[in-house]
Simulated scan of single mutants.
Amino acid sequence: MVERSASDAALLASIRERVHATLLVLLIALRPLVWDGDPTQPANLAYLVLAVIAVSVVVIEGWAGSVSSWRWTFSGALFALIVAALIPACVRSPLPMEGGALWLMLAVHLGLAFYLMQALPGRERLAFAALAAGLVGEVLVAHGQRLWVLPGMAAASANGEFAAIETVGGDLAERIANGGVYGTFTLANTFAAYLVLVVPPLLVSAWTRSADRWSRAVVTLAAGLAAWSFVGASSKGAVLAIAIASSMGWVIVRRDRWRWLPLALVAVALSALALRPALWEPMQASTRVRAGYWLGASTLIAERPIAGHGIGAFPTLAPAAMPLWA
């Protein structure tokens, strides 16, 4: 009887391990691959269902006594309070369904973070492999866009096929001509931000922990391809973020006379832009659109600084709040 109980316990532990391993790989590897900016898309909804299943698994394990204690952080608790505080914003949203979908997505991702905190310890190498797999998938999609999709869009734009949706300032044509790859994301900036967040931790993990040489080779190759994709994304915001982060790190780490080198480089860059206005030309359309967004957002914030206009209200209200030149 005792042997049978031990055998049943071992079988249950094996099943739990396989379930968590499968969920961990799917949740980490698929997150970037199923996101296109619309929370109501079937692929994203399926991912959210998968996340709910994962959270349900650990909750059931806790109810059954299989979890001795929950792992949590103060930052996670603070984010949970913020998500809860956004519930009234769903009610005030001019598009309640979309606002509710965005709020639900935030709540589910909070639950996903909770699940990862419970499931990740002891499975770090598996999570590392899943993160690398997701990166490779994104990079392959991006290279396909760079080789085939973007040239096709440029040809269609040259033939006037996008004339009906072109803006007064020619922003669409400018983005097609100077814009970059975006992977499975809606915007190149989002894709570049993903690369900035994922590639450095992968490289650090591969070269500072006890990873085998094949893992290091694969990650290094993927990082190289990702760097090419990053250049192809043409994301000025991501480049600026890297420059700021690198400069801050340099100033913090260095203690010699070269500590303030980033400030000198910033001064040189600003001087070059002031002396050569032509350097701004590739960024004018993009800068104009962003400035319009910021001014429109500031106008809407000033109208309701406390209560706000509701989740998802900006696309509906922004056209009336943004300046005409944006």
Rank of each mutant, 00 (worst) to 15 (best):
L120E: 14
A177D: 02
G179K: 02
V139I: 15
G122W: 07
A154Y: 02
C90S: 11
A156K: 12
V91A: 11
G137V: 15
L78M: 09
R123D: 05
Y182T: 01
T73C: 09
V108M: 15
Q145K: 10
Q145Y: 11
F79H: 04
I176K: 01
G122T: 00
P151V: 13
M105K: 03
N178Q: 12
F114K: 09
Q118Y: 10
P88G: 10
L131K: 14
A163M: 04
L102H: 04
E174L: 03
S157Y: 00
S75W: 09
S157V: 02
N178T: 01
W148Y: 15
N178P: 07
R125T: 01
A84V: 15
F114P: 05
S93C: 12
A156S: 01
V108N: 12
A163T: 03
L78P: 00
A192H: 08
A127K: 14
A89L: 11
V139G: 04
A119M: 13
A84H: 10
L120I: 03
C90W: 05
L95D: 05
G100N: 13
Y115M: 10
L81M: 06
V139C: 12
A163L: 07
L102T: 08
N159V: 06
A89M: 06
L131G: 12
F114A: 06
A113S: 12
P94K: 12
F128C: 07
I165M: 09
A177W: 04
G99W: 07
P151C: 09
G160P: 14
G100P: 15
N178I: 00
M153N: 00
R123M: 13
G169A: 05
G169E: 00
C90H: 07
F162Q: 06
M97K: 09
M105P: 03
G144Y: 12
A164T: 10
M153K: 04
H109I: 08
L110W: 09
N159C: 14
E166Y: 02
N189M: 06
A77Y: 13
R71P: 06
A192M: 13
A85Y: 15
A89N: 12
V83K: 03
G99Y: 11
N178Y: 02
T73P: 08
L187V: 10
G111I: 01
A192Y: 13
A132R: 08
A107L: 03
G169F: 05
P121W: 08
E98H: 11
C90R: 01
V181A: 06
G152Y: 05
R123P: 04
I87G: 11
S93F: 14
L81R: 00
A119Y: 14
L86G: 01
P94D: 13
A132P: 06
A192E: 10
G137C: 05
I165F: 08
L140P: 09
P94M: 14
V136H: 15
A119R: 14
I87V: 13
V136Y: 08
L104I: 07
S93P: 06
G169Q: 00
D171M: 02
L120A: 13
